[in-house]
Amino acid sequence: MKKHARLFFLAATALAFSACEKTDSMESMVTPSQSAVLYATNNSNGDISAYDLKSSNMMTTTFATSSTAADGVYFDGSTGTLLQVSRSSKGIEGFKVTSSVNLGGILNVALDIDGSKDMESPREMAVSGNFYVVADNADVDKNTATPDGRLFIYQRNGNSFSLRNVITTDIKLWGITFIGNDLYAVADADNKLGVYTNFLSNTSNMTLTTSKKVAIEGIVRTHGLDYDASTDTMVLTDIGDATNTQSDGGFQVITGFKSKFNSVSNSGTIAAKDMIRVSGPMSNLGNPVDVAYDGETKTVYIAEAGNGGGRILSYTNITANGDMAPKMNQSLAAASSVYLYKK
Rank of each mutant, 00 (worst) to 15 (best):
G194F: 07
V166H: 07
N266P: 08
K117G: 03
H4E: 13
V338T: 06
K2A: 15
M1N: 11
T207C: 02
T243A: 15
T146H: 11
M1L: 13
T61E: 00
S88C: 08
A272N: 10
D24W: 04
E93R: 12
L200P: 04
P281Y: 07
K3Q: 11
D290M: 04
D323C: 11
L15C: 09
A333L: 08
K343W: 13
A11P: 06
I113M: 09
A50L: 05
A333Y: 06
K54Y: 12
D188R: 13
V101T: 10
T243H: 08
I92E: 03
I302K: 00
I106V: 13
D190H: 09
V85K: 01
G180P: 05
T168W: 02
G94Q: 04
N307G: 01
S100V: 11
G94K: 06
I171Q: 13
A320K: 13
M1C: 11
L332I: 00
M125H: 03
L107P: 00
G240E: 07
G129W: 07
A272M: 08
V186G: 14
S336C: 02
V264N: 01
G77P: 05
N143C: 10
T13N: 15
D52Q: 00
Y315T: 03
A292M: 02
E27R: 12
D148P: 07
S337C: 06
V300T: 05
T23R: 09
V253W: 05
G77S: 09
M119W: 08
G256V: 01
Y196R: 06
Y315G: 00
N317G: 10
T62Q: 02
E124A: 15
F75L: 14
D241M: 10
G249E: 07
V166F: 08
H223V: 03
V73S: 06
A303G: 01
I254Q: 01
A305C: 05
N143Y: 07
Y196I: 10
G158Q: 03
L313W: 00
S89C: 03
N157T: 15
K258V: 06
A242D: 13
S265P: 02
V73P: 03
N57K: 12
S100N: 12
G309R: 05
A215I: 10
S201D: 14
N198W: 06
Y341T: 09
L183H: 01
P122V: 08
V133Y: 04
M125S: 04
T23A: 13
D148C: 10
M1S: 13
R277N: 11
R311D: 00
F95A: 03
A16R: 09
D241L: 14
N57S: 15
T60F: 00
F131I: 12
N43F: 01
G256A: 05
L313N: 00
Y227C: 00
V166A: 02
T168D: 12
D139T: 10
T168I: 15
K192F: 11
D76G: 04
N198M: 04
M59K: 14
G322W: 03
S230G: 12
T81P: 03
M26W: 05
V73A: 08
Y196N: 05
K273N: 14
D47V: 01
V127A: 06
I302P: 02
P326C: 00
K212Q: 05
V235Q: 04
N205G: 11
D148M: 12
V220M: 13
D323Y: 09
S100Q: 10
V134S: 06
V30D: 09
Q252A: 15
G105E: 01
A215R: 12
V214K: 07
